[in-house]
Amino acid sequence: MSERLSAIEIRSAGAYASIQDGGRRGLRRVGVPWSGVLDPALMKIANALVGNQATAPVIEHFDGGLLLKALHGCVRVAVAGQADIDITGEQGVQRVVCWRSVCLNSGETLRIRALRAGRLVVIAVAGLQVPETLGSASTYARAGIGKPLAVGDRLSAQLTEASDFLLPEPPSDDDSIIRVVAGPQAGHFLDDALATLCGAPFTVTDQADRMGVRLQGPRLEHRSEAHKDIISDATVPGSMQVPGSGQPIVLLADAQTAGGYPKIATVISADLGRLANRRAGETLRFQMVDVDAAERAARSHAENLAQLIASIRRLPGDGSVDLEALYNSGLISGPISGFESEE
């Protein structure tokens, strides 16, 4: 181990943890999915908290149970998402909050005990060094590009100074509205199908992974048996396929690059990360917008995220800030959503 490098070891991988980054772009035309984090906003916030580039590799983790141990020196880590976290070291077990960075000294462990909301969190490690394949460090396990993290895996990182940073007003997501634009095969469905899609709640099922999420709600009727399938054509993350069951499937980062189910709609990029982070049993509603509104929402989303990241502040080193009190009652009006669009 060099003097400038440290390392973290996976002591427990929990339900599922993998290395992801901004994705493997430019190769869908030859059948390679984007992959990358399901919620890019969480990646960018976590990386900003530890001083990384916005799309640097991170650990994406589902459902809690991840346990990391620092092996050498001081390693700065940050967790973006809603989770219960503790650090164990010479001082015993200390509870810490999300949306901030902490320095793990040699031998200390950080545990994601449970998620409070959503189905995933993102953990950034300052200077995390991961080899790339086809221009990205993202894991795409179905094709053997990388593999999920497992007990005993060691990841190199930079030694860092013991300075911690905080996002003062964490984003919240209590908005159940997911915006969509009409899909390329919207005409394969009855005239009232889009109204049905946007007129009733849909429930996230437990059939959800990095490839896609199945929803349960009112049946979206095809025009005929012949309209239930198409000659396979291109898909993108956000595509909403509807098989013969009439129940929609929203494709996510690891989704195939082509498919044979008609696509009634596409979730806009500004809302796709929010949908991907929904737990089984949660309900959501869809709202139809046009392409111009989707583009405005994307710009607004990016601007709001940039403002959030610009608000990150260095914490004093004397432990004088009670972060739990700050997040629970210290904000004037409580946490606000940084992802609301101008629509």
Rank of each mutant, 00 (worst) to 15 (best):
V125D: 03
A126M: 04
G127R: 05
G127S: 05
G127E: 05
Q129A: 12
Q129N: 11
E132M: 09
T133V: 12
A137K: 03
A137T: 12
S138K: 00
T139G: 00
T139P: 00
A141L: 01
A141S: 10
I145H: 06
I145V: 14
K147I: 01
P148G: 00
P148C: 00
L149C: 01
V151Q: 12
G152F: 06
R154Y: 01
R154I: 10
L155H: 03
Q158A: 13
L159Q: 15
L159N: 12
T160W: 02
A162M: 08
F165R: 14
P168M: 10
P170V: 00
S172G: 08
D175V: 10
D175A: 08
D175Q: 11
D175I: 08
V181E: 07
P184K: 09
L197K: 05
C198P: 03
A200L: 06
V204Y: 06
T205K: 08
D206T: 09
Q207V: 07
Q207G: 00
Q207T: 07
A208V: 12
A208F: 04
D209A: 02
D209V: 00
R210Y: 02
R210L: 01
G212Q: 02
R214E: 06
L215G: 07
L215T: 07
L215S: 09
L215I: 08
Q216R: 14
G217Y: 11
R219W: 08
R219S: 10
R219Y: 12
L220V: 07
E221G: 01
E221S: 13
E221D: 14
E221Q: 15
E221A: 14
R223T: 13
S224V: 09
S224R: 08
E225K: 10
E225R: 13
K228F: 04
D229I: 10
I230K: 04
S232M: 02
S232A: 07
D233C: 04
A234P: 01
T235D: 03
V236T: 14
V242A: 12
V242E: 13
P243G: 09
G244C: 12
S245L: 05
S245N: 15
